[in-house]
Design a protein around this nucleic acid. Structure first.
Lengths: 334, 334
DNA sequence: GTGAAAGCGCTAACAA
DNA sequence: TTGTTAGCGCTTTCAC
């Protein structure tokens, strides 16, 4: 900047004013400065500026998700990026693999880089770093999964209702033995989806069969193995509710491998790529990750503005998409 | 840091030494400093440090891809993140939608944040920002797509050979009318894949049918429409080579809609989720984005080390995965 | 409308 | 082993 100032024959402050589009600079001076900038290929150092700037903003934001390569997470990521980049804010993205330890590390890495705000998916009901963020007054919006703590901003799917809708759909098609395949119950989404499943069974007066409930699934392979075991048991399910995208993929594999994909019903939570092209098509309760990302980012920027509201919990509706697999009737037991 | 120093009763430089694990501090002093750090919940400001540090490093890196929510790109992203975070480096990720203008903007945004290095996918043969990066001595590794410029580090798939393998596979199954569906030809990957397709046809002595070559496709919907048109033409293809993941998805949709998925052969370039569960399974030439990301990141860190080698072009092999759709024989013309 | 000086939080260089 | 001082590139404050 010193060099630019020298070349343009002005003071550094004037260069700063021109580059940051501040008032009180003559057209002619500005022109000279821009010429010098181009001449030197000068790029402003935003970091240095943030050190001294009154608001201390770095024009940077931290996004934490389960994994950036999960399609659900990357849809959120893309939406967040679009909102942020339109405002000149860059996004640090990190994956935490649903591990509370990695989550804490990632948040600390964000803090050391002085992000202006955070959009977080949490693997913990009571994140250890939350008091720290509050003390610092750092804006946070949770997305997809939120802590059990009160007073947090969040954007999440209607997990409980969605799971109930999925289960009720299977019940409506005559099923009574509906398996539930879900994540680790220390994750709030898994607990809510299980609750929705139980709600629907209760509503229909169908007793819960504990042997049909498998929790703690972490990936497609685990889900596939778990369902494969259920399918060869003495009294297999006639329908399956898989409560997460990777679990749904594992479930489809298991049904295929057992030759039961046309006879055992399946409804998944969260849409899956090409689910419509499978045979039968995979019925899902679709989330809207793109919208979740957009809402979370917009809420974060509202917080970064002057918004002093009480924390907002936004629930994004889900939609049942029947495609065939969820509409299979129970087979007569042979 | 001043506060920590005061609380621990030492100078700031000692605090700096302790936190950065520099030598020449007594065990006891270090202990006092750490206690003060915990007491105050102090977090080092990495940005401020980089301003003064000899190497000027920000422990930050910029990753540019087509879109962070494309599965191919997000697999690269995840791999890069893993390598980077192991080294204490955070990743800025941006999408450019194969637009050279957005690409330049993103690179400039990275520069303003003083990233230590860049991993870029380019939409341009001669990126306008490249001289700037060279002048600055900023390490860059291109991934997936590289500029035509000489002297750049890159990690890419063996596009030409992969496309030839795909086409040859269809030829080997007796096809002579093989459609090519590909991206905009201003993208180097599209040109190389087309060349591989032409190589294979030439090798087999099969004349090129220009009417079967569709270029300039940007998404699944466009690809679907384009293939739908070809399929109802007077002399439709008996086989299709779709040269990109979204295009493959569009192609599957078109074949399904036309009721031809069991009679028209299809091989895609780049693997697609659940391709193995389609009916028939989708034969693809699979890339290895995870490996590409790992290699690109490792190369970048080598460059950031003392590595003064000439630029390296790494070619990552691809693998044909037969799943059914590519092994369909040409149907007798009715 | 413009510029000089101070200082953001840190690390380099050097002195103690 | 430790502390002091200067200065990284910028923006703030305030004087002109």
């Amino acid at each position: 900047m010193k060099h630019v100032a020298a070349l343009a024959g002005v003071g550094v402050k004037t260069v700063s004013r021109v580059i940051n589009d501040e008032p009180n600079v003559t057209e002619a001076t500005a022109e000279r400065v821009w010429n010098a900038v181009r001449e030197l290929d000068y790029q402003l150092d935003l970091q240095a500026g943030s050190l001294r700037r009154a608001d201390g903003r770095t024009r940077t934001l931290g996004l934490l998700v389960g994994s950036v390569d999960n399609p659900f997470a990357s849809a959120i990521h893309r939406a967040v990026e679009d909102i942020a980049s339109a405002r000149g804010v860059a996004v640090f993205a990190s994956s935490m693999d649903d591990d509370a330890g990695r989550e804490s590390e990632a948040v600390r890495a964000f803090l050391q880089r002085r992000v202006d705000g955070l959009i977080l998916t949490t693997a913990s009901d009571h994140p250890e770093y939350l008091p720290l963020l509050r003390e610092r007054g750092l804006p946070v919006v949770y997305v997809d999964r939120e802590p059990v703590e009160p007073e947090v901003d969040s954007v999440a799917s209607d997990n409980r209702v969605g799971a109930a809708v999925a289960t009720a759909h299977l019940l409506a098609h005559g099923h009574r033995r509906i398996a539930l395949l879900t994540d680790r119950l220390d994750l709030i989404t898994a607990r809510e989806r299980r609750q929705g499943y139980l709600d629907a069974l209760a509503e229909a007066g169908v007793p819960v069969a504990e042997e049909l409930i498998v929790t703690g699934l972490r990936d497609a392979e685990g889900a596939q193995a778990a369902l494969a075991r259920l399918l060869i048991s003495d009294s297999p399910p006639t329908a399956v509710f898989s409560a997460q995208n990777l679990i749904t993929i594992g479930a489809v594999h298991a049904l295929r491998a057992a030759g039961l994909s046309r006879s055992t019903a399946l409804v998944g939570f969260d849409d899956v790529a090409l689910a419509d092209l499978m045979d039968p098509g995979v019925t899902v309760v679709a989330q809207d990750p793109q919208r979740m990302g957009t809402l979370a980012a917009e809420r974060l920027f509202a917080l970064l503005g002057d918004d002093d509201d009480a924390p907002t919990k936004t629930v994004v509706p889900v939609a049942l998409i029947p495609r065939g697999s969820g509409e299979i009737a129970p087979q007569p037991t042979s």
